[in-house]
């Protein structure tokens, strides 16, 4: 069964390029034109991976991430964020506090984006290491 990815971006050309790349790689791709539409799609069906832009109308990428992390059933959803804001966004904070697995700056490489997505999917597919306790 193919992995599903949700792409959120208000730039139709960016959306189309990423959609094209991921479809060719065998992903089940859905797209949303802004954060609110993305949120509705996530609620309708949870994707295996979310790739979202930062700056979008109605609900921006950060607002979408906040909503996702506030929902317990979505707290482990892997997220990749694309942004044209560069150094204005603290990548460390996004990773440490909001669980964003990767932050890619625009202009981005679809090839690299796909590579990062496949790495995340592979990491998610691996069974969790057994928890060992002292003395066991």
């Amino acid at each position: 069964m193919s992995k599903s990815v949700l792409l959120c971006d208000d730039e139709v050309h960016i959306l189309r390029a990423a959609e094209f790349k991921f479809q060719r790689a065998g992903f089940d791709v859905r797209t949303a034109a802004d954060g609110l539409e993305g949120w509705e799609q996530i609620l309708a069906r949870r994707p295996d991976l979310l790739i979202t832009d930062w700056q979008m109308p109605r609900l921006d990428g950060f607002g979408l991430v906040q909503r996702i992390r506030a929902e317990e059933s979505l707290s482990d959803l892997p997220i990749i964020m694309l942004t044209a804001k560069g150094f204005e966004v603290s990548h460390e904070e996004l990773r440490a506090h909001w669980g964003v697995r990767a932050v890619l700056a625009k202009p981005f490489s679809p090839r690299e984006l796909l590579l990062r997505a496949e790495e995340l999917m592979a990491a998610a597919a691996e069974p969790a290491a057994p928890v060992t306790t002292a003395g066991s």
Binding site: A84, P107, S109, P110, R111
Partner: peptide
């Protein structure tokens, strides 16, 4: 910031499609 964003957006499109 706005100039940066507005320039990077078409550049992102150009780079993505050239790479494809």
């Amino acid at each position: 910031s706005a100039v940066s964003h507005e320039m990077k957006t078409p550049l992102a499109g150009i780079k993505a499609y050239v790479e494809l």
